[in-house]
Design a protein around this nucleic acid. Structure first.
Lengths: 375, 375
DNA sequence: TGAATTCATGTAAACGTTTTCAACTTAGGG
DNA sequence: CCCTAAGTTGAAAACGTTTACATGAATTCA
């Protein structure tokens, strides 16, 4: 079927170059090039001869040569810490959509917070393999990486690197954390723990601050022993669960985890010990990943507009790569609170009836802060 | 702090080339090149002079030029249908690990089963932007894509394209499906439904066959009305749940979903209708993604050795890209059964209900070939 | 000491494009 | 009939490397 043994075609091994086409069409390489990039500039008898030659030889322009000449690669590098994390999925989809539509290719690099890997990608960037960089990494992959920004745009998505001066597209973390904390308080909780993100992460700090804001606004003083260090992953959640279980009578009645994965890990951890969620303890997450809605109980969480983040970030980068001024220099997007099943009103004697009623649907009934969904 | 205004450095705009280094060190470009690729070939007084010049100019070799000259890009393309699916995560990690260690960069492309996108990546490959292709896609991104395989190796991971002749690294789908079905039967189920993968997918067919094998081995005849078409995603699971709920008394007692996501979607769907898992219906998945263990109930599933698949596939590709013969021409890896919480043995009282459905339209499935497992 | 070898370096050709510039043709205007 | 302008094409340079080949110096061997 498929001609393998090089008998059918003259030279099956070498790929056709522009010169092959030129010779076949009896024109110069310049004309072939023009046929491809700007057909209007080549006259009719020639044009169709060249097109025929292209078809016959199966010619495709060599991207490397083209890039070398054009001094650009039409590629961008996306640097993430952990491609596997389901949080990135939607963002990546959006980024890929924008960049592909604009004719750019995308290279995804996973740093895993490993300096060796970061250096590897640093080298790729320095070697001019890409025209721009999208950073999700939380930190720069090289010490003098910033100096590249003049010729090679860098944009931050869902992470901030303070004092880098780079455009950043992320969520209003502090506001969102404050809102979630306020919500937990509004449904009756006063002893609320917070499982934080990884140390050194800017977002971690902002969410902690927002959490403290929320407590402060309700006149509740911050109890440091209720701020538990985490790391945005399952195990951090189960670790927190162990910590929770060790506590005696003064267990918090609600947990605010800085990521959905941690919230799910926590729930899994305490459930295995016979604790019910939300009957015995309420748990709220952050991110709004797909699984948060499909978990049992469905997770009350702060939904990040991930698609929008990806879209805006990618558009910013594209604009700058093509020399245009970017529409936005950055953005802090608002989150939306998804009230689901994993948080229940605190069943204090005073509020008992109201709490009972809402427990049934899993929705929240509280006149002061939360909108009543009705029944 | 950081010198932004180009006053500090002579020409901050242009990147240093090998010629700049050569001039500064007062040698030829050949010597600079040798210093980088094979330092032993350049004598001492010169060597350090060149090294100094490289450092001073901040020179990094231009990858595009190097690739053009070397006629290779040190890049490979990974084509997947849906980067977001959590099934790929682990495989991608493994692939990236191998390729990065071997000095290759990785481009991930998401086809989303969209011919337009596939054509886009087909073009990238034809333009010589990569040295090899890793296909997860389930089909070729172009009609005469195979003819590229001589000069540009293509390897299939976790999908097969029959009669393509390409090396494929995947799981023994039929065996695994048979084993899962056999397990469900072994714990007492006789009425087992199967939620299939997407139509047209080779793996879908293999798992259906395995499912039928399993039934056959136990003397249970296949009931076509219990083979429900799916698509490897949540919604296919919830769709199946709706289908299940519509069924009356003759509901299956166990569901074997061809992916964990579908299993989770199914459980979520029936739970919302008040059905308990596994008390009222047992559910088994396939894949062994992370969430399967963290879901509630923890999912009984067939764990695919995803890391191994990725490792072997990537190694196969690397070998072929570098001209070496590959160790393996492909592999069918065994799965392992993870027995967790979502499947319960079928107890006797419940089988009485099953007996009630003896009046049935034409088709098979009667007591003759079904000796009751002991009680 | 002369010839043969090794060593260190430079020259220049490739890699496959795009694009500037010049050259040639044709048409149009006076 | 000449001059200019527009249109079409080709020659050659450029992009930044690597590397085959050549050259000259230093070393070795007889």
């Amino acid at each position: 079927m498929t001609k393998r043994n090089g008998i059918a075609k003259a030279r099956p091994s070498r790929r056709a170059t522009i010169l092959d086409v030129a010779r076949r069409a009896e024109v110069s390489t310049a004309t072939v090039s023009r046929t491809l990039t700007d057909p209007d500039r080549v006259a009719e008898p020639t044009l169709s001869r060249v097109i025929a030659a292209i078809r016959e030889t199966g010619y495709t322009p060599n991207a490397t040569a083209r890039n070398l000449r054009a001094q650009s690669t039409k590629m961008v590098l996306c640097l993430l810490p952990g491609l596997g994390h389901s949080f990135w999925n939607v963002i990546i989809d959006a980024v890929e959509e924008v960049l592909t539509n604009q004719g750019y290719g995308v290279i995804f690099g996973d740093t895993r917070n490993d300096p060796v890997r970061e250096a590897h990608y640093d080298r790729i960037v320095r070697a001019g393999q890409v025209d721009g960089v999208l950073l999700f990494n939380g930190r720069l992959p090289g010490t003098d990486f910033l100096q590249l920004n003049s010729k090679m745009p860098i944009t931050l998505i869902s992470n901030d690197i303070p004092s880098s001066g780079l455009p950043v597209f992320e969520v209003a973390n502090r506001d969102a954390a404050r809102a979630m904390t306020a919500y937990l308080i509004a449904v009756g909780h006063r002893r609320v723990a917070h499982i934080t993100g990884p140390k050194g992460n800017v977002e971690t700090g902002e969410r902690i601050t927002g959490y403290c804001d929320g407590l402060g606004a309700a006149g509740i003083s911050v109890d440091d022993s209720l701020i538990w260090p985490g790391a945005f992953n399952f195990t951090a959640g189960t670790d927190a669960a162990r910590r929770f279980l060790k506590l005696g009578a003064d267990r918090p009645t609600a947990i605010f985890a800085a990521s959905d994965e941690m919230a799910i890990g926590f729930i899994k951890g305490v459930k295995d010990a016979g604790i019910r969620v939300p009957a015995d303890v309420s748990v709220a997450g952050f991110d709004g990943i797909e699984y948060s809605a499909n978990f049992d109980p469905a997770l009350t969480t702060m939904i990040q507009p991930r698609t929008e983040m990806g879209l805006l970030g990618a558009e910013n980068l594209v604009a700058r790569m093509s020399g245009r001024p970017a529409d936005l220099q950055g953005a802090r997007l608002p989150c939306s609170l998804a009230i689901r099943e994993s948080v229940a009103p605190l069943d204090t004697p005073r509020r008992r009836t109201a709490a009972r009623r809402s427990r049934r649907t899993g929705h929240v009934e509280d006149g002061s802060a939360a909108p009543a969904p009705g029944d």
